[in-house]
Design a protein around this nucleic acid. Sequence first.
DNA 1: TATGGATCCATA
DNA 2: TATGGATCCATA
Lengths: 219, 219
Amino acid sequence: MKIPHIETLISRGPFSESAEWKRLRTELLAAVRAAEWPPGTGTFTIRPESGKKRGEGNGVKPIKDRTVSLLTAGRKYGEMKKRGLTDHRGTWVAEHPWPVGERIKPGNMDAAYVLQDAGIVCLEWETGNISSSHRSMNKMCLGLHKGSIKAGILVVPSRALYPFLTDRIGNIAELEPYFELWRSTDCAEGVLEIVVIEHDAVDLKAPRIPKGTDGRALT
Amino acid sequence: MKIPHIETLISRGPFSESAEWKRLRTELLAAVRAAEWPPGTGTFTIRPESGKKRGEGNGVKPIKDRTVSLLTAGRKYGEMKKRGLTDHRGTWVAEHPWPVGERIKPGNMDAAYVLQDAGIVCLEWETGNISSSHRSMNKMCLGLHKGSIKAGILVVPSRALYPFLTDRIGNIAELEPYFELWRSTDCAEGVLEIVVIEHDAVDLKAPRIPKGTDGRALT
DNA sequence: TATGGATCCATA
DNA sequence: TATGGATCCATA
């Protein structure tokens, strides 16, 4: 997978300049670049078919799988907790709960790295509706505002990849008008970045990425 | 329709204390209270049937219609523009475009009041997915941040009304963890409020609010 | 093409 | 019940 652009919205304070963050960022970007289609090819080739119509084009669910599993090596927060493993310092963990919000638990992060000292680096890979990307960004901004995360990274498709995926998926173009708002987030320190992804190649003979409704009786 | 709660997130500067704002707010709340079901009854009676399952419960689209038409008296921005009417000062107008964002036009407001001096009071009635409420809030925060709107009001269902409507509709409970973030919006002046709505009564014999064919609905 | 929305899904 | 999706719709 290509990364045509990285938008750095916030980068402030000692952690943003630390060797640890540089290492984690490099690791994370390498895992994003390792996303592939079809599986096992080492590159991301998309079938150029519009995703807007029912049952056509490419679904989005499998796209992030390899990145998350490369980073976390299969460590999932919930499963580890069942086995009594609750100290994740120094590792990436999938499905890590959010440390913000008291009255309502705000769901899980796609992946998180728990720092040795204190704080969390959070990865959100957006494959939902564009409006869902706003919730992801807000969640990371809230974490930075409250000081409960040290860095937040959102991964979203480029406008070139967007038309081939399920209609109205999160994409960088529609987030741009809001950059100014997120840059102005009231936080003492931290990092907030949006990583843009794009297919390596287009091939009419590439298999479609299945949509979540395949094999299910929707008719 | 009942208004069990109004959450005032921002209220700052001269406009927030002006007689004009007090008048507009009263007008707006009266129009919200005038929402009704079934049409013509003067009260909002909901059929207590879960909206989560396919084809069951109540859709959301018609709920805001009466409020918007009472406020705007049928004035729609697009239609008036066609007839050469572009000065809306001193009136409420439906489907008013957003004055924020240059590279991408960020859609329309449900209703807006154009002030005599400068600035706009914006009403967003959220009947979309909860994630869509985040986009609405971000849009209003961006408008306040840039000074292009004077007030933003979001209308969302209470948690008591929520279960009877289409699954995952915007609701006040899921927005609460983010109040702290929106309160901290960097803006010089303005008003930001969330108006919570709830049915007046429940009746097993009330007609269902019809659902449309969006999303994963069939036919 | 572009944008806000509306509707169900998967899983804990 | 609760939460983050995933998918398709309506309209300009």
